[in-house]
């Protein structure tokens, strides 16, 4: 599989504080890789470096076949931040096309139909609504559509469902799973939810506590397309148990229960 994101010995420190130990990582075309780890382990820092929003202290990052900053300029990356970051004065429809409205010269041809995407995620009746009229889950759906509307081959998602309740969160990961399978984009997904990582990923990379280092890389061999019912499968639980054990190992603990 061709790597569309490649990290070679990438490390990050802020002054005297080591945030991320040297790390090697590859994400192939169409592959969904999740970074799983405790809060403060450097997952978001790593994602921001791939997005070209933060320079690494050492090592090299390749996105597509170029640098992160050139990838930004050519709108190769679709970013979904932790908060929906919707502009409150824009309607749902206008928010969904926000990234298409700037740096227009780098827009893909043809431009994906963002209204159709909004309809697909169940927001067809809310095109002219403003963000304050939507629930948290609906706002996050707009944020997902905004990233997918770029038609990017690379999606970076930073704990997009962290602030949602458990039921909405489950709905959102099922929706995201569907969208990812449809588009075939390479996805680097950050979370500290084990269930989310198993459901969505082809591979889960577990990071230790700060400074984040790779504790393990676990392939998730569950069949695709993945339906919500797969979360009741014994194989799903096995993956969860294994990842939980790795997380404890990364935290320097030996038990498997919290």
């Amino acid at each position: 599989m061709t790597a569309v994101i490649r990290l070679d010995q990438v490390a990050k420190s802020f002054g005297d504080l080591d945030a991320l130990a040297p790390i090697d990582l590859e994400v192939g075309a169409g592959e969904v890789v999740t970074l799983l780890g405790p809060s403060g382990c450097g997952k978001t820092t790593l994602l921001r470096m791939v997005a070209g929003l933060e320079p690494p202290s050492s090592g090299t990052i390749t996105v597509g076949d170029t640098t992160p900053s050139l990838a930004r300029a050519t709108k190769v990356i679709g970013l979904v931040p932790q908060t929906p970051a919707l502009l409150p004065w824009r309607t749902v429809e206008a928010n969904a096309r926000l990234l298409l409205d700037v740096n227009r010269g780098a827009n893909p041809t043809p431009v994906p139909d963002h209204v159709d995407l909004l309809r697909q995620v169940g927001l067809g009746d809310f095109l002219q609504a403003h963000p304050h009229e939507l629930s948290g889950g609906m706002q996050q759906r707009v944020a997902l559509v905004r990233a997918f509307a770029l038609g990017s081959s690379i999606l970076l998602m930073d704990e997009p469902f962290a602030s949602l309740d458990e039921i909405t969160r489950a709905d959102m990961r099922h929706l995201l799973g569907r969208l990812c399978e449809q588009t075939g984009a390479a996805v680097l997904f950050v979370t500290h939810s084990i269930a989310e990582s198993v459901f969505l990923s082809d591979r889960v990379v577990v990071l230790s506590q700060r400074p984040g280092r790779m504790v393990g890389s676990v392939p998730i061999d569950l069949p695709r397309p993945r339906l919500p019912a797969i979360e009741d499968d014994a194989a799903f639980f096995e993956h969860e148990t294994r990842l939980r054990a790795l997380l404890h190992e990364g935290a320097g603990r030996t038990g498997t229960s919290t």
Partner: peptide, 15 residues
């Protein structure tokens, strides 16, 4: 201005 929105616009190199 919302810092997340600023980063979002920076991720597509908005001028």
């Amino acid at each position: 201005a919302d810092p997340s929105a600023r980063e979002l616009l920076a991720s597509v190199e908005a001028s």
